[in-house]
Simulated assay, not measured.
Amino acid sequence: MTALKDVISLKFKAMQSDGILLHREGKKGDHIILELVKGKLSLLINLGDDKIHSSSAQINISLGSLLDDQHWHSVLIEHFNNQVNFTVDKHTHHFHAKGEFNYLDLDYELSFGGIPEPEKSGSLSRRNFHGCFENIYCNGVNVIDLARRHKSQISFVGNMSFLCLEPQVVPVTFLSSRSYLALPGILGQEEVAISFQFRTWNSEGFLVSSKVNQASGGFFLYLSDGKVKISIHKPGKPLGDITAGN
Protein backbone atom coordinates (compact mmCIF):
# COMPACT_ATOMS: atom_id res chain seq x y z
CA MET A 1 0.00 0.00 0.00
CA THR A 2 1.18 3.48 -0.72
CA ALA A 3 -0.89 5.14 2.02
CA LEU A 4 0.23 4.88 5.63
CA LYS A 5 -3.42 4.57 6.60
CA ASP A 6 -6.24 3.30 4.41
CA VAL A 7 -9.80 4.37 5.28
CA ILE A 8 -12.99 3.39 3.44
CA SER A 9 -16.43 4.40 4.69
CA LEU A 10 -19.93 4.12 3.26
CA LYS A 11 -23.60 3.74 4.07
CA PHE A 12 -25.83 1.18 2.40
CA LYS A 13 -29.44 0.07 2.24
CA ALA A 14 -29.85 -3.51 1.01
CA MET A 15 -32.83 -5.01 -0.80
CA GLN A 16 -31.39 -8.55 -0.77
CA SER A 17 -29.56 -10.63 1.83
CA ASP A 18 -26.52 -11.41 -0.35
CA GLY A 19 -24.29 -9.27 -2.52
CA ILE A 20 -20.88 -7.66 -3.01
CA LEU A 21 -20.52 -4.17 -1.51
CA LEU A 22 -16.82 -3.59 -2.05
CA HIS A 23 -13.95 -5.26 -3.87
CA ARG A 24 -10.43 -3.90 -3.83
CA GLU A 25 -7.56 -5.66 -5.53
CA GLY A 26 -3.82 -5.25 -6.00
CA LYS A 27 -1.61 -6.22 -8.91
CA LYS A 28 -0.32 -9.32 -7.10
CA GLY A 29 -3.76 -10.68 -6.28
CA ASP A 30 -4.07 -9.14 -2.81
CA HIS A 31 -7.69 -8.21 -2.23
CA ILE A 32 -10.32 -7.08 0.25
CA ILE A 33 -13.96 -8.08 -0.22
CA LEU A 34 -16.89 -6.68 1.73
CA GLU A 35 -20.11 -8.56 1.11
CA LEU A 36 -23.49 -9.39 2.54
CA VAL A 37 -23.94 -13.08 3.27
CA LYS A 38 -27.37 -14.07 4.58
CA GLY A 39 -27.89 -10.60 6.02
CA LYS A 40 -24.49 -10.45 7.76
CA LEU A 41 -21.59 -8.31 6.62
CA SER A 42 -18.41 -10.27 5.89
CA LEU A 43 -14.95 -8.74 5.48
CA LEU A 44 -12.48 -10.97 3.65
CA ILE A 45 -8.79 -10.03 3.39
CA ASN A 46 -6.52 -12.17 1.21
CA LEU A 47 -2.81 -11.78 0.54
CA GLY A 48 -2.83 -13.20 -2.98
CA ASP A 49 -1.66 -16.35 -4.72
CA ASP A 50 2.06 -15.92 -4.12
CA LYS A 51 1.55 -15.85 -0.34
CA ILE A 52 -1.26 -18.39 -0.08
CA HIS A 53 0.88 -20.84 1.91
CA SER A 54 1.33 -18.39 4.76
CA SER A 55 -0.64 -19.30 7.90
CA SER A 56 -1.92 -15.72 8.06
CA ALA A 57 -2.78 -15.46 4.36
CA GLN A 58 -6.51 -14.87 4.87
CA ILE A 59 -8.85 -13.31 7.41
CA ASN A 60 -12.66 -13.48 7.31
CA ILE A 61 -14.73 -11.54 9.86
CA SER A 62 -18.52 -11.13 10.06
CA LEU A 63 -20.47 -8.39 11.83
CA GLY A 64 -24.14 -7.51 12.15
CA SER A 65 -27.28 -9.42 11.29
CA LEU A 66 -30.50 -8.77 9.38
CA LEU A 67 -28.72 -6.00 7.47
CA ASP A 68 -31.04 -6.56 4.50
CA ASP A 69 -33.90 -4.79 6.33
CA GLN A 70 -34.02 -1.87 3.85
CA HIS A 71 -32.69 0.53 6.50
CA TRP A 72 -29.46 2.52 6.26
CA HIS A 73 -26.35 0.93 7.79
CA SER A 74 -22.87 2.44 8.11
CA VAL A 75 -19.53 0.74 7.48
CA LEU A 76 -16.00 1.88 8.29
CA ILE A 77 -12.82 -0.02 7.37
CA GLU A 78 -9.50 1.33 8.67
CA HIS A 79 -6.24 -0.40 7.77
CA PHE A 80 -2.87 0.87 8.93
CA ASN A 81 0.25 -1.30 9.00
CA ASN A 82 -1.12 -4.63 10.24
CA GLN A 83 -3.93 -3.14 12.34
CA VAL A 84 -7.50 -3.35 11.00
CA ASN A 85 -10.66 -1.81 12.45
CA PHE A 86 -13.93 -3.06 10.98
CA THR A 87 -17.02 -1.13 12.13
CA VAL A 88 -20.67 -1.77 11.28
CA ASP A 89 -23.29 0.50 12.87
CA LYS A 90 -20.91 1.53 15.69
CA HIS A 91 -19.98 -2.08 16.49
CA THR A 92 -16.23 -2.39 15.95
CA HIS A 93 -14.01 -5.43 15.58
CA HIS A 94 -10.32 -4.61 16.15
CA PHE A 95 -7.74 -7.12 15.07
CA HIS A 96 -4.00 -7.35 14.67
CA ALA A 97 -3.05 -9.24 11.51
CA LYS A 98 0.12 -11.25 11.74
CA GLY A 99 2.70 -11.72 9.04
CA GLU A 100 2.60 -9.75 5.81
CA PHE A 101 -0.70 -7.88 6.05
CA ASN A 102 1.15 -4.60 6.30
CA TYR A 103 2.39 -5.27 2.74
CA LEU A 104 -1.06 -5.49 1.15
CA ASP A 105 -0.97 -3.98 -2.34
CA LEU A 106 -4.48 -2.64 -3.00
CA ASP A 107 -3.95 0.25 -5.38
CA TYR A 108 -4.80 -1.56 -8.61
CA GLU A 109 -8.60 -1.75 -8.70
CA LEU A 110 -11.54 -0.66 -6.56
CA SER A 111 -15.20 -1.45 -7.26
CA PHE A 112 -18.48 -0.99 -5.41
CA GLY A 113 -21.58 -3.13 -5.82
CA GLY A 114 -19.94 -5.96 -7.74
CA ILE A 115 -16.75 -7.58 -9.01
CA PRO A 116 -15.53 -7.36 -12.63
CA GLU A 117 -14.40 -11.02 -12.60
CA PRO A 118 -16.25 -12.74 -9.72
CA GLU A 119 -14.98 -16.22 -10.62
CA LYS A 120 -11.48 -15.10 -9.57
CA SER A 121 -12.46 -13.32 -6.40
CA GLY A 122 -13.05 -16.08 -3.87
CA SER A 123 -16.15 -14.25 -2.65
CA LEU A 124 -18.88 -16.16 -0.86
CA SER A 125 -21.97 -15.05 -2.78
CA ARG A 126 -20.64 -13.62 -6.08
CA ARG A 127 -23.89 -11.67 -6.40
CA ASN A 128 -23.89 -8.00 -7.22
CA PHE A 129 -25.32 -5.71 -4.57
CA HIS A 130 -28.99 -4.74 -4.95
CA GLY A 131 -29.79 -1.55 -3.05
CA CYS A 132 -28.48 1.95 -2.39
CA PHE A 133 -25.16 3.50 -1.39
CA GLU A 134 -24.45 6.93 0.00
CA ASN A 135 -21.41 8.78 1.38
CA ILE A 136 -18.79 6.47 -0.16
CA TYR A 137 -15.37 7.80 0.82
CA CYS A 138 -12.01 6.24 0.04
CA ASN A 139 -9.13 7.99 1.82
CA GLY A 140 -11.14 11.21 1.85
CA VAL A 141 -12.24 11.01 -1.80
CA ASN A 142 -15.99 11.24 -2.41
CA VAL A 143 -16.52 8.37 -4.86
CA ILE A 144 -20.20 9.11 -5.59
CA ASP A 145 -19.38 12.73 -6.40
CA LEU A 146 -16.77 11.57 -8.93
CA ALA A 147 -19.32 9.20 -10.46
CA ARG A 148 -22.02 11.88 -10.64
CA ARG A 149 -19.62 14.18 -12.48
CA HIS A 150 -18.66 11.30 -14.83
CA LYS A 151 -14.97 11.60 -14.11
CA SER A 152 -12.75 9.51 -16.37
CA GLN A 153 -11.41 7.33 -13.53
CA ILE A 154 -14.94 6.04 -12.82
CA SER A 155 -16.63 3.41 -14.99
CA PHE A 156 -20.27 2.27 -14.88
CA VAL A 157 -21.60 -1.26 -15.41
CA GLY A 158 -25.32 -2.08 -15.45
CA ASN A 159 -28.27 0.10 -14.43
CA MET A 160 -27.69 2.83 -11.84
CA SER A 161 -29.32 6.09 -10.82
CA PHE A 162 -28.29 8.85 -8.42
CA LEU A 163 -31.32 8.53 -6.18
CA CYS A 164 -32.65 5.97 -3.73
CA LEU A 165 -36.34 5.19 -3.93
CA GLU A 166 -37.93 4.70 -0.53
CA PRO A 167 -40.39 1.82 -0.18
CA GLN A 168 -43.97 3.04 0.00
CA VAL A 169 -45.21 2.97 3.58
CA VAL A 170 -48.91 3.33 4.44
CA PRO A 171 -49.29 3.67 8.23
CA VAL A 172 -52.44 3.15 10.24
CA THR A 173 -53.15 4.61 13.68
CA PHE A 174 -55.53 3.05 16.21
CA LEU A 175 -57.12 5.99 18.00
CA SER A 176 -58.89 4.10 20.78
CA SER A 177 -58.71 0.83 22.71
CA ARG A 178 -61.68 -0.44 20.68
CA SER A 179 -59.99 0.05 17.28
CA TYR A 180 -58.70 -2.88 15.25
CA LEU A 181 -58.33 -4.29 11.74
CA ALA A 182 -59.84 -7.64 10.75
CA LEU A 183 -58.86 -9.75 7.75
CA PRO A 184 -60.94 -12.81 6.82
CA GLY A 185 -59.05 -16.07 6.62
CA ILE A 186 -58.85 -18.47 3.69
CA LEU A 187 -60.70 -21.75 3.91
CA GLY A 188 -58.31 -24.68 4.37
CA GLN A 189 -55.26 -22.48 5.01
CA GLU A 190 -52.68 -24.29 7.15
CA GLU A 191 -50.04 -21.55 7.50
CA VAL A 192 -49.94 -17.82 8.11
CA ALA A 193 -47.03 -15.36 7.68
CA ILE A 194 -47.29 -11.84 9.11
CA SER A 195 -44.77 -8.98 9.18
CA PHE A 196 -45.21 -5.40 10.38
CA GLN A 197 -43.58 -2.54 12.25
CA PHE A 198 -45.20 -0.77 15.16
CA ARG A 199 -44.66 2.12 17.55
CA THR A 200 -46.59 2.68 20.75
CA TRP A 201 -46.35 4.40 24.10
CA ASN A 202 -48.38 1.66 25.79
CA SER A 203 -46.72 -1.21 27.62
CA GLU A 204 -49.75 -3.51 27.32
CA GLY A 205 -52.04 -4.50 24.47
CA PHE A 206 -52.89 -7.02 21.76
CA LEU A 207 -50.98 -6.73 18.48
CA VAL A 208 -52.11 -9.66 16.34
CA SER A 209 -54.29 -12.70 16.82
CA SER A 210 -54.90 -15.50 14.36
CA LYS A 211 -56.86 -18.72 14.28
CA VAL A 212 -55.62 -20.83 11.38
CA ASN A 213 -58.23 -23.57 11.60
CA GLN A 214 -59.91 -25.77 14.18
CA ALA A 215 -57.24 -28.48 13.99
CA SER A 216 -54.13 -26.27 13.88
CA GLY A 217 -55.10 -23.80 16.61
CA GLY A 218 -53.78 -20.24 16.54
CA PHE A 219 -51.74 -17.59 18.34
CA PHE A 220 -51.90 -14.23 20.11
CA LEU A 221 -49.12 -11.65 19.76
CA TYR A 222 -49.26 -9.02 22.47
CA LEU A 223 -47.35 -6.53 24.62
CA SER A 224 -46.89 -7.25 28.31
CA ASP A 225 -44.73 -5.00 30.53
CA GLY A 226 -43.26 -3.51 27.36
CA LYS A 227 -42.15 -6.90 26.01
CA VAL A 228 -43.48 -8.64 22.93
CA LYS A 229 -44.96 -12.03 23.73
CA ILE A 230 -46.62 -14.70 21.65
CA SER A 231 -49.02 -17.26 23.03
CA ILE A 232 -49.50 -20.35 20.88
CA HIS A 233 -52.48 -22.59 21.44
CA LYS A 234 -53.23 -25.98 19.91
CA PRO A 235 -56.22 -28.21 20.59
CA GLY A 236 -55.58 -30.56 23.49
CA LYS A 237 -52.24 -28.96 24.45
CA PRO A 238 -51.32 -26.35 27.09
CA LEU A 239 -50.59 -22.80 25.97
CA GLY A 240 -47.00 -22.09 24.94
CA ASP A 241 -45.55 -18.61 25.54
CA ILE A 242 -42.48 -16.97 23.97
CA THR A 243 -41.08 -13.58 25.01
CA ALA A 244 -38.84 -11.23 23.00
CA GLY A 245 -37.62 -7.65 23.33
CA ASN A 246 -36.74 -5.47 26.30
Results as ranks from 00 to 15, higher is better:
Ile20Leu: 07
Asn82Thr: 05
Leu10Thr: 01
Leu34Thr: 02
Pro235Ala: 12
Lys40Asn: 07
Gly64Tyr: 09
Gly226Phe: 11
Ala193Arg: 06
Leu47Cys: 02
Glu100Tyr: 05
Arg24Met: 12
Ser74Asp: 14
Leu76Phe: 08
Asn246Pro: 13
Lys229Asn: 15
Ala57Glu: 04
Gln153Gly: 00
Gly64Glu: 04
Val7Phe: 09
Glu100Ala: 09
Val88Asp: 07
Asn81Asp: 14
Gly99Pro: 06
Arg24Pro: 00
Ile8Gly: 00
Val170His: 14
Leu63Gly: 01
Thr2Val: 08
Thr92Ala: 04
Ser56Glu: 13
His130Arg: 11
Glu191Leu: 06
Gly245Arg: 00
Leu36Lys: 07
Pro118Lys: 06
Ser224Cys: 04
Asn202Tyr: 14
Phe162His: 12
Ile45Thr: 04
Leu183Phe: 15
Ala182Met: 07
Gln83Trp: 05
Glu35Leu: 06
Ile77Thr: 04
Glu117Asn: 13
Glu78Asn: 12
Thr173Ser: 14
Gly29Gln: 03
Ile33Cys: 04
Phe156Tyr: 14
Phe174Gly: 09
Asp89Arg: 10
Ala193Tyr: 10
His96Asn: 14
Phe12Gly: 09
Ala97Val: 03
Leu34Asp: 04
Val37Cys: 04
Ser55Gln: 11
Arg199Phe: 00
Asn60Glu: 15
Gly131Arg: 11
Ser9Leu: 01
Phe101Gln: 03
Gln197Cys: 09
Lys40Arg: 14
Lys11Glu: 15
His233Asn: 13
His96Tyr: 15
Gln153Phe: 00
